[in-house]
Simulated assay, not measured.
Amino acid sequence: MTVRSLTPARAGRDSTIALLALLAGGIAIGGSPIFVRLSELGPITTAVWRLGLALIPFGLWAVVDRATDTESRKPERLGDFIALAVPGVMLAADLAAWHLALHETSVANATLLSNMAPIFVTIGSWFFFRTAITARFTAGLVIALVGVIVLKGGPALFNGNGSLRGDLTALVAAMFYAGYILGVGRLRRRFDTLSIMLWTTAAAGLTLLPVALVYEPAFFPTTLFGLAMLFGIAWISHAGGQGMITYALAWLSPAFSSLTLLIQPVVAGILAWLVLAEPIGAMQAIGGIVVLAGIVIARRG
Rank of each mutant, 00 (worst) to 15 (best):
M1W: 04
T2W: 04
T7W: 09
A11S: 14
R13S: 10
R13L: 11
D14Q: 13
A18M: 09
L19R: 09
A24S: 03
G25K: 05
I29P: 00
G31D: 03
G31S: 06
S32E: 07
S32L: 12
L41M: 13
L41I: 15
G42N: 05
I44F: 02
T45L: 03
A47S: 04
V48C: 00
L51D: 00
L53N: 07
P57R: 13
W61K: 11
D65R: 14
D65L: 14
D65K: 13
A67C: 14
D69Q: 13
D69W: 10
T70Y: 05
S72I: 11
R73P: 09
K74L: 12
E76M: 13
L78A: 14
L78Q: 10
G79N: 12
D80G: 07
I82P: 02
I82A: 10
A85E: 07
P87R: 10
V89R: 06
L91M: 14
A92D: 08
A93C: 08
L95T: 04
W98M: 08
H99N: 11
E104S: 10
V107K: 02
T111P: 01
T111N: 09
I119P: 02
I119H: 06
V121L: 05
V121C: 10
V121E: 03
G124H: 01
S125T: 11
W126L: 15
F127Y: 11
A135F: 11
L141K: 02
V146C: 07
V146S: 05
K152H: 06
G153E: 00
G153W: 01
A156C: 06
G160E: 12
G160D: 10
N161R: 09
R165I: 13
D167C: 06
A170P: 04
F176D: 03
R186S: 09
L187V: 12
F191W: 06
F191H: 02
L194G: 00
W199P: 01
A202G: 08
A204T: 09
T207G: 02
P210T: 09
A212L: 01
V214H: 06
E216P: 06
A218T: 14
T222Y: 06
T222F: 07
L227D: 05
L227N: 05
I236A: 07
W251M: 13
W251P: 10
P254N: 12
P254L: 15
A255P: 06
F256W: 09
L261D: 03
V266N: 01
L271S: 02
A272E: 04
W273R: 12
V275T: 08
V275K: 07
V275Y: 03
L276W: 10
A277W: 03
E278W: 04
I280Y: 02
G281H: 09
A285C: 09
A285L: 15
I286Y: 04
A293S: 08
V296S: 01
